[in-house]
């Protein structure tokens, strides 16, 4: 491909900072350039460049055989992506809003996730898209979908919190031989605070490895996605106002879960708070709590607590949504309770 690279995809090459959205675009662009078998499927990703413009100018650069606008039918094009993966291609599916992944639930759980186990071999397929609340999107443009898939063996689930991680994790996901659901928090897409200068080499961040965001000694917060940033705010408040030292673990990959990182931190701080933006019942906090109970019960000096969204559909009005979502103050209150326990 001799076409010039669009200017907005050259920021890292030029040493300029990028947003998380731009980091994701760069990852896709670089992987498509590196490997001809990588191609994109999704709604409005071609001429329009995607609802959030993640694939802006990709169509003119790569052509319509590699950037395929699909009918509005997530099950159909996700299933088609799986068929193409069988034949040696590496499809990356964009779900316009991850709330709309549910029509593809059948093919993802019954077909895609079981493929390697059933003897059909690797299934290199990434299903990516925007998730998360805080944008007044209402019930159908705000959900987190990880736990609908967390219970399905054979899938990997990735949920980055920074621009650097998003790029490295997405590259790793595209190169993975297993199906990956890749969640991108839309509130982080263009967040100015997340802009950073990325390494200009072809780096990848391995799946299944958590990151210690902040070291601490009094309690551990295990979290991911947008809640990493609220947890960091809370930790700074706790340190300055209470003298409490908080360690923060960003899971980065939810499935497989980096249990070792969680257990190691709990053994150090002896207290655990799990923070997730997803709703409460059946959230990942439950799974983390049982694993710590299995592996580090003797090290615990307090109850395992959680801060989450409330068990309700995501409401539209700002006052309702703010009440629905976990806020920094919730994290501070829960951490204070736990620190004093």
């Amino acid at each position: 491909m001799d076409r010039e690279i669009p200017e907005h995809l050259l920021k890292t090459k030029n040493g300029e900072p990028v947003t998380m959205l731009e980091a994701i675009s760069e990852a896709l662009f670089e992987e498509m350039t590196r490997d001809d078998s990588v191609f994109l499927l999704g709604e409005d990703i071609g001429v329009y460049g995607g609802a959030f413009k993640v694939t802006r100018d990709f169509l003119t650069h790569f052509g319509e055989n590699r950037v395929i606008d699909t009918p509005i039918a997530e099950g159909g094009f996700t299933g088609a992506a799986a068929g193409a993966a069988h034949m040696g291609l590496r499809p990356v599916v964009e779900i316009q809003f991850m709330d709309f992944i549910s029509p593809a639930y059948d093919v993802i759980t019954n077909y895609i996730a079981t493929s390697n186990y059933r003897g059909a071999g690797p299934m290199p397929l990434v299903i990516r898209g925007p998730v998360g609340g805080g944008n007044r999107g209402g019930p159908f443009h705000s959900q987190n979908v990880e736990m609908a898939f967390f219970h399905t063996p054979g899938l990997k689930i990735v949920y980055p919190s920074t621009a650097k991680d998003a790029k490295g994790l997405l590259k790793a996901s595209i190169r993975d031989e297993n199906p990956v659901i890749f969640e991108e928090h839309k509130g982080l897409y263009r967040a100015p605070a997340l802009r950073e200068v990325l390494p200009d080499d072809d780096y990848v961040i391995p799946l299944g490895k958590a990151r210690t965001v902040r070291e601490g000694t009094d309690l551990t917060i295990v979290t991911y996605g947008a809640m990493v940033h609220k947890s960091v705010e809370a930790a700074e408040t706790l340190e300055s106002e209470d003298g409490v030292s908080v360690e923060i673990i960003d899971l980065r990959t939810l499935l497989p879960l980096d249990e070792d990182a969680i257990v190691e931190s709990v053994k150090k701080t002896n207290k655990l708070l799990v923070v997730h933006e997803d709703t409460r019942t059946g959230g990942i906090a439950g799974e983390i709590a049982i694993r710590v109970s299995e592996k580090a019960f003797e090290w615990l000096d307090g109850p395992i607590l959680r801060v989450t969204a409330i068990d309700a559909p995501v409401p539209y009005s700002g006052s309702l949504e703010d009440y629905f979502l976990p806020q920094t103050g919730d994290v501070v209150n829960a951490a204070r309770y736990l620190a004093a326990y």
């Binding site: 191609f39 055989n65 590699r66 099950g75 159909g76 996700t78 299933g79 088609a80 992506a81 799986a82 068929g83 193409a84 993966a85 069988h86 034949m87 040696g88 291609l89 499809p91 059948d106 093919v107 019954n110 077909y111 079981t114 059933r118 059909a120």
Partner: peptide, 23 residues
């Protein structure tokens, strides 16, 4: 390619396999 029990799925899968032939 062996089917899965919900057979309608296989139309989607074969669509993708044959898409790869065309591409």
């Amino acid at each position: 390619v062996g089917p899965v029990s919900p057979l309608g799925t296989m139309i989607e899968i074969m669509a993708g396999m044959t898409l790869s032939f065309r591409l």
